Simulated assay, not measured.
Amino acid sequence: MSFDLMAAAIDWLDAYRSGDIEAILRMCADDAAVHCGCGGAKTITGKEGLRAYWVERLREYPAFDLDNIQPTCVGTLISYVSRDGVVSAVLTFNASGQIASLAFGPSKDSSERGPA
């Protein structure tokens, strides 16, 4: 890929932290999928499904500070602080640099850090 995966993940977190749903949706491919393990496992697809998901997520699970970021064999792992602790997200990207999938879940060690 000819774009910076780490910078793309930071851009995503910045949009999330600022509550910019439109920017988040622009970053996502038309066939993007969100796999959320927070509050019960679910998969969300389609622009309207993603929009509804982000409206709720921004209200219920706002993101705060960056905790960690690192490349993976499939994309980027980014961890951030939320009001309920540290959350990890794995972002994968398509050849155009758009988010193809995003998988959320509590960080393995978030219980050790306590709530934000």
Rank of each mutant, 00 (worst) to 15 (best):
E60I: 11
L102G: 02
V87H: 07
G85T: 02
C28S: 15
G39C: 05
S107D: 00
T76C: 15
D30G: 09
R57V: 06
S111W: 09
G46K: 08
Q70P: 03
S101Y: 13
E56W: 12
D65K: 01
F64K: 12
L91P: 00
S96Y: 06
G49F: 03
L25Q: 00
G39R: 06
G85Y: 01
F93M: 02
V34A: 12
D31Q: 13
T72Y: 03
R83L: 01
D84S: 15
D67I: 04
G46C: 06
S96V: 04
A52S: 13
I78E: 02
N68C: 08
P106V: 01
R59D: 14
A41D: 11
L66M: 06
K108T: 12
Y61D: 10
L58M: 00
F93W: 02
P62T: 07
K47Y: 07
Q98H: 11
S110Y: 05
Y61I: 13
A89K: 01
L77M: 09
G46N: 07
R51P: 01
G97C: 07
E112T: 05
A63R: 02
R83W: 03
V74L: 15
A32P: 03
L58G: 00
D31W: 06
S111C: 13
K42V: 09
L25W: 01
E56I: 15
T76L: 06
G39T: 06
T92N: 10
Y61V: 14
T45E: 13
A103W: 01
V34T: 09
W54T: 05
L58C: 00
G39E: 06
S111R: 13
G49N: 07
V55F: 09
T45M: 11
D109S: 09
M27Y: 04
A63Y: 03
E112P: 00
S79H: 01
L77F: 04
P71H: 04
D31C: 07
V34S: 12
R83P: 01
D65T: 01
E56L: 14
C73Q: 12
V34H: 11
P62R: 04
S101G: 13
C73H: 13
R57A: 12
A29C: 09
A103P: 01
A95G: 15
M27K: 07
V34C: 15
R57K: 08
R57W: 06
Y61E: 14
T92M: 11
G105C: 03
A89E: 10
A63G: 08
S82M: 13
V90R: 03
S82D: 11
C73I: 13
L66I: 02
D84P: 07
V87S: 04
R51A: 05
I99T: 05
G105H: 01
Y61L: 15
S88L: 04
K108R: 11
I44P: 06
A29K: 12
